[in-house]
Measured scan of single mutants.
Amino acid sequence: VAMCDYCKLQKIIKETVRFSGVDKPFCSEVCKFLSA
């Protein structure tokens, strides 16, 4: 469980994407796409 980078809620992380050398955790595909 970690904080989703988009919705800022403590959730089970399903996706982690690396932006500019920094790992960004996301709880769902939706949050990942909305943050892009």
Rank of each mutant, 00 (worst) to 15 (best):
Q10T: 12
C7M: 02
E15Q: 06
S20C: 09
S35A: 08
S20M: 14
G21I: 07
C31R: 00
C31W: 01
C31H: 00
F26C: 12
L34W: 07
F33N: 14
K11R: 06
E15P: 10
A2E: 08
C7Y: 05
V17R: 04
V30S: 12
K32A: 10
V17M: 14
K11F: 11
D5S: 13
V30P: 01
R18M: 14
A2R: 04
I12K: 13
F33E: 14
A36D: 15
F19G: 10
A2Q: 11
K32L: 03
K14A: 05
T16H: 14
I13C: 03
D5A: 10
S35W: 08
K14E: 04
S20P: 05
G21A: 04
K32G: 04
F26D: 05
C31I: 01
A2T: 02
D23M: 10
A2P: 02
D5P: 06
C27A: 00
V22I: 13
V30G: 10
E15G: 07
I13T: 11
Q10M: 12
D5M: 08
E29D: 15
T16L: 03
Y6L: 04
V22M: 15
A2S: 06
C4Q: 03
I12W: 09
Y6D: 02
D23I: 02
C27K: 02
Y6N: 07
P25K: 14
F19A: 12
T16Y: 12
T16C: 11
R18C: 09
V30D: 12
K24E: 11
E29F: 00
K11C: 13
K14C: 02
Y6A: 03
D5V: 03
E29V: 05
K11V: 08
K8E: 05
E15R: 07
K14G: 07
K14M: 14
I12L: 11
F33P: 10
R18Q: 10
F19K: 10
F33V: 12
Q10E: 14
C31G: 02
A36R: 08
L9M: 15
R18G: 07
V17P: 06
S28E: 02
V30N: 15
E15V: 09
K11W: 05
T16R: 10
C31S: 00
L9S: 15
Q10R: 11
L9E: 15
Y6V: 02
K32D: 00
D23A: 07
V1I: 15
D23C: 06
S28K: 02
G21C: 01
F19V: 13
S28R: 00
A2V: 05
C7P: 01
V17G: 11
F26K: 04
A36N: 06
F33H: 09
R18I: 08
K8V: 00
D5H: 12
F33L: 13
M3Y: 13
S35T: 00
R18E: 10
S28H: 06
L34E: 11
S35P: 00
K32N: 00
P25E: 03
C4R: 05
L9W: 01
A2W: 03
I12T: 11
V17Q: 04
F33M: 15
F19Q: 13
Q10W: 04
Y6R: 09
A36Q: 13
C4K: 12
V22S: 08
K14L: 05
S20Y: 12
R18V: 09
Q10P: 11
K11A: 08
C31Y: 10
S28G: 03
L9P: 03
I12G: 12
F19E: 13
K14Q: 09
F26E: 06
F33Q: 11
S35C: 09
K11S: 04
S28C: 04
K14R: 04
K24H: 09
F33A: 14
D5G: 10
P25S: 11
D23N: 08
F33K: 14
I12N: 12
C4F: 02
G21L: 05
F26P: 08
K8N: 07
M3S: 09
F26W: 02
S28A: 02
V22A: 06
D23K: 02
V22E: 11
I12S: 12
K8S: 04
F26A: 09
E15L: 01
F26Y: 14
F19I: 15
L34P: 03
V22F: 04
A2G: 08
T16W: 02
V30Q: 15
P25W: 09
M3H: 05
K32S: 01
Q10V: 12
K24Y: 12
L9I: 10
C4D: 03
